[in-house]
Design a binder for these strands. Structure first.
Lengths: 84, 84
DNA sequence: CGCACTATCTATAAAAG
DNA sequence: TCTTTTATAGATAGTGC
């Protein structure tokens, strides 16, 4: 990917947020693809430093998975949710 | 990546499992990287069709996250766990 | 910020061993 | 099958608006 970078915390806030946004999109796409191609359910969740749920992605049986595995009140904590 | 494929369920079992294994590794690596570079906690979970947790990945405060967000008895359900 | 570009680096489908 | 290789598609850091 682009110019090679060392895998360590990006200290510059703006750059860190940009990188997070870009990589999150790619991760969600990949999570989506593996879920479809490999017929598995996938949860991908990123927690911000403050502890809030930032993102969630899955393919199928989403509600079921949420009820079975997650304690958090979804509506309240999810910034947004993408279901492929 | 490699020869282009259509994003739909891979019907051939062997090929599907091979693809799952490869893509899971890549996803975990990416999840690891975004966690470190962007200073976020990440959960990545793939559920097999039978519902068992197949994989989990995170960076930090793992136990805390598990206790706060997951209902499942970790020891019991995780096939294996990778913590970066 | 948010999107667009693109040179580079990474992931990976197939093939080969 | 499992690993390794290889050709190619995809991801992305830096940059410019």
């Amino acid at each position: 990917m682009g110019r090679k970078i060392e895998i360590k915390k990006i200290e510059e806030t703006t750059k860190r947020q940009v990188t997070f946004s870009k990589r999150r999109s790619s991760l969600l796409k990949k999570a989506d693809e593996i879920a479809i191609c490999c017929d598995v359910d996938v949860l991908f969740v990123a927690f911000s430093p403050s502890g809030r749920l930032n993102k969630f992605c899955s393919q199928q049986r989403v509600e079921d998975i949420l009820q079975r595995y997650l304690k958090v009140p979804v509506e309240q904590r999810l910034t947004y949710m993408t279901i492929s």
